[in-house]
Design a protein around this nucleic acid. Structure first.
Lengths: 334, 334
DNA sequence: AACGGAAATGACTGCGAATGCAAAGGCGAA
DNA sequence: TTCGCCTTTGCATTCGCAGTCATTTCCGTT
């Protein structure tokens, strides 16, 4: 078993006493090779430590078996799970993952350049793309599936978690439980889900004839606490319900409410989140939130992408999944 | 700007009225091309939406500019940060990341097959590799850097966080503060850092003439609570210090101690962790732990790998970084 | 105007595997 | 034994680009 560098199909062919074509065929499904020949070849390959060169394969077949995954902030606590799921599912289908992690949104353009260069078979993107960038995928014929965002202005395949349904469940529950002074901590203005969720909450509150104070956060723990303080100041400490557009900010707000401001949660202040990250279920928080069905969403994203790799002309489709209401102990509902 | 599929250097050459060689040179650093010619070529390339085919480049130059990152459990809360850092640093050096996320350790063998096929320039691995697997990297001439583990039996480049120093600081602090009944929650038996840290703690306790009760966990939140309960049962509830080999278990233990068992932390029970993940600093926990210098460690891993890609014969090196003691409020120290 | 040397450019080959096509081999039936 | 058909096999070509080598162009010199 002398594994060595640069073993090619010719080396294997020589050792097995066949032609290079035969070696190629021996490694491909359903090719015409006599069982005995294939056995000899496989044996020779094993002896030499041969593995087909995926680069060369990609060049000639025009299939790299590579899929780009572009994620903006991996540290979001929500994405790692998504990434792991996506990677493993894609692996099962013989597709490798080329990972691009954006430090800043402005890096997208550069990243896309690399995506084109590697001739990926498709891409799953959880980052903001401009209309031009979206069209670039179409023009280059690279199948694309957006994760938790939709193609603004351009029809693109995407999977999302339903913001309206989710926030409606939370708002309705809070209103029915008697809350009246609402605060909302949104995300950065350029975040799709941030705006979606905030608007969903605002609209549903309006439906009940209620208004809410609104501040923006950065989706992180600190934003939650700061947002809460700001809202408290603005409302003369009268806030009795706080809707955060993600869990991390809700957690930050809970900690600040309990340990800094000295408000009982949920006794004096109800707090809700969105995502259903693992810390949300920790004993200290028991957050009332909407859990995104990550398994189903990743499964859908992968399925949609693979479909489109096989048949590039499938029309765009949006799959919107309802989240699950996790009734924790951070909010009085119903 | 008609971006289209399959634009090759020949297309660009034709449009710019030059040869394919010229196009190739125009896109390479320091090649001999007249500025005017290069400008014409770049313009033509832009007009056609040409991007050099990295696959073809890889085939001929034998440099894929691809690095494999193999991580066992991405959901560990500690790894996402590491992954994001590694990816971004590698990107800055023009290297792309081929991500492999293991669902089970047994998948390693299959993953390695893919790693060979893609002719990656190197690999960073945070997963358990057998001696044979380690040698396979050497035999195939693929530079390898291990993250938070060392090559057992084989000399391999690696970066680690010092378990001895870290646990020593924690143990010494706890002992000096008067703790005597110790419990340790370790990791799975096949985890390198788990064993390292547990042993480090046990040895340091022995140095003080103390023993500790020991149970194993799975590095997750639940393990912390369960481990604590088990230890409490074993020690007749006399435990006064709990050392967890990672933060997540420490957090789980804190929640269980406070909310289930009804023990004051740190009043009646001191708890320590290891890693310095972000939830450790949350207001609700303020965990006393050892923070791994992630930035320096990832920086080192990337530097070591790139060095070895440039000069494959550089000898193995271990870089061990001291962690930083985060004195939180989960333990009485000194 | 002629020359020399450096810079710029193009023709050509090869990286490693896949595949169309033609040739060879195997086997059963007549 | 011969024919015909199907399965195996090999040859030759191709994918897109880098890099070698030979050729041409361009300048400054004398």
């Amino acid at each position: 078993m002398t594994e060595k560098v640069g073993v090619t199909s010719y080396d294997v062919a020589r050792r097995a006493g066949v032609s290079q074509s035969a070696v190629s065929r021996a490694f491909r499904q359903g090719a015409s090779v006599a069982p005995a020949t294939r056995a000899r070849i496989v044996e020779a390959a094993q002896a030499l430590g041969y593995e087909p060169n995926a680069i060369a394969q990609g060049l000639i077949t025009k299939r790299s078996n590579l899929v780009a995954i572009i994620i903006s902030n991996l540290t979001n606590l929500y994405y790692p799970e998504v990434l792991a799921e996506l990677t493993q599912r894609l692996s099962q289908h013989g597709v490798r993952v080329l990972l691009f992690s954006l430090a800043a949104e402005s890096d997208v353009e550069e990243v896309l350049g690399q995506v084109w260069r590697y001739r990926v078979d498709g891409a799953i993107v959880a980052a903001r793309l401009s209309t031009e960038q979206l069209s670039a995928f179409a023009n280059r014929g690279v199948p694309l599936v957006l994760y938790n965002r939709i193609g603004e202005g351009v029809p693109v395949a995407s999977v999302c978690c339903d913001s309206d349904l989710g926030e409606r469940a939370l708002v309705d529950g809070l209103v029915q439980a008697g809350h009246r002074r609402f605060g909302i901590i949104g995300g950065p203005a350029d975040s799709y889900v941030g705006e979606e969720r905030a608007n969903a909450a605002i609209n549903r509150l309006a439906h009940h004839g209620l208004k809410a104070e609104f501040v923006r956060g950065q989706f992180d723990y600190e934003s939650g606490g700061e947002g809460l303080k700001t809202l408290m100041a603005r409302t003369d400490n009268q806030l009795d319900a706080l809707i955060c557009v993600n869990d991390l900010m809700a957690i930050g707000a809970m900690d600040t409410a309990r340990n800094i401001i000295g408000r009982k949660v949920p006794g004096e202040l109800s707090i809700t989140g969105f995502d259903g990250v693992s810390p949300a279920t920790w004993e200290a928080y028991q957050l009332t939130t909407i859990r995104q069905p990550v398994r189903r969403m990743t499964q859908a994203a992968v399925a949609m992408l693979l479909e489109r790799i096989e048949s590039p002309d499938i029309s765009p489709e949006q799959r919107v999944f309802a989240g699950e209401l996790l009734s924790g102990r951070s909010a009085r509902l119903l």
